[in-house]
Computed example of a mutant assay.
Amino acid sequence: MSEEAGARALFDKFGTYILPGRVNDPRRGIEEAIEAERIGLGCVWISERYALKEPAVLAGAVSEATSKIRITGTFYATMRHPLVTASVANMMQAMSGDRFRLMFARAVPAYMKMLGAPAVTMERLADAISIIRRLWAGETVNYEGILGKFPAIKLTDKHDGSTPPIIFTAIGPKSLEFAGTHCDGVLLHPFVSPDGVRNSTRIVRDAAEKAGRDPMSVRIYHNIIVAPDLPPEEEAAVVRGRAITYFELPGFGDMIVDINGWDKAVLDQIRAHPQIASLNGKPADQAYTRQELVEVGKILPQKWIDEGAAVGTAAQCADQLMTYLDAGADEILLHGSSPKDMGPLVGELKRALAAKGL
């Protein structure tokens, strides 16, 4: 029986977060991964949130519950010894049959400071990536530097399959250049518009070329909030409420606006709102639910929603998602909706992909 039109492109180009946001029951993530694979998506992405969303544990559970879907786990590089991170990824490849991808995120500096953890600087991250790759290559690593002193670290038992791709989440020019220089892929931030994708892709691939790498070997992943066929109040929480947790952050919000060429004055309005101003620098994501930020979200211009997310009917969302592929994204991470609610969207994505000859 021949494969349905657009199905292979869907698997190659679309994935989804499991357990987005705060979590009460992590077992739901396994059900979401099974459903994502059933409807034809090609990857599940796992973020790191301390308490009930530990990516090493959840990735292992997902690898046993699924058979072909790719698994991307997010880690803060300074929270684990490099040998531990290298070992987790090494074992995940062995457990999953080479389906694992390792992603590093920088986190909000204020959050890392609250934890008493070193900031995830570019220097620390570059050294961590170098050490991990050397460990995967079977080397005994003798390192002394910004990460500490490791006289002789080695993976005693190495998985014989492929090494995991290393992806980095990036927004601003420096982090995009870092990804092009050091990583196998880059995950763009939610609410980066098609123009922002083009700008980001150019920065990443120029940096790769300057580093003597094949520019096209660095994959561009884009993280997009999707809200297909949702009731208005749920759509407002999924899109506008979630958006505020990004735009209110000093630095993060500014970089998104800069890469898109949007009006920065809107950020001042968001940060001056009593709900945000009263936080005194604490991230809104740690203080409010998405529903509680809907009122602040009304400040966002409709243009930002239209260009930075995929909202409306399933068909409208699918057509909007195609514009990000056209702008340079190699793979899209669907965020904000659960796999159980994505059936109509997946059908429309296969239609749109087939129409493009993919």
Rank of each mutant, 00 (worst) to 15 (best):
A77K: 08
R213E: 07
Q269Y: 12
I69R: 01
C43T: 11
A314R: 02
E3P: 00
S278C: 03
P215N: 02
E295K: 07
D25W: 10
V44Y: 04
A152T: 08
I46Y: 07
F252N: 08
P165C: 03
V238E: 08
D214T: 04
D263K: 13
F100Y: 15
V62H: 00
E123H: 09
E64P: 04
K13Q: 14
M95D: 01
G241W: 05
D330N: 14
I220D: 01
M322V: 14
E139W: 13
A128N: 15
F191H: 05
I259T: 15
V238I: 14
P215V: 00
T140M: 09
D12A: 10
I224W: 06
I30F: 08
P228H: 03
G251C: 10
T163S: 13
A318Q: 06
D184V: 09
L358P: 09
N142R: 15
A7V: 04
M114G: 13
E233W: 08
H273M: 02
R134A: 02
P232Q: 09
L52M: 11
E248P: 09
R271K: 08
L353K: 02
D157M: 14
V218D: 08
A61R: 07
P55F: 01
A107S: 12
S193T: 14
G116H: 11
P82W: 06
W304S: 01
Q320H: 10
I153M: 12
T323L: 03
F247P: 00
T289Y: 12
S2R: 14
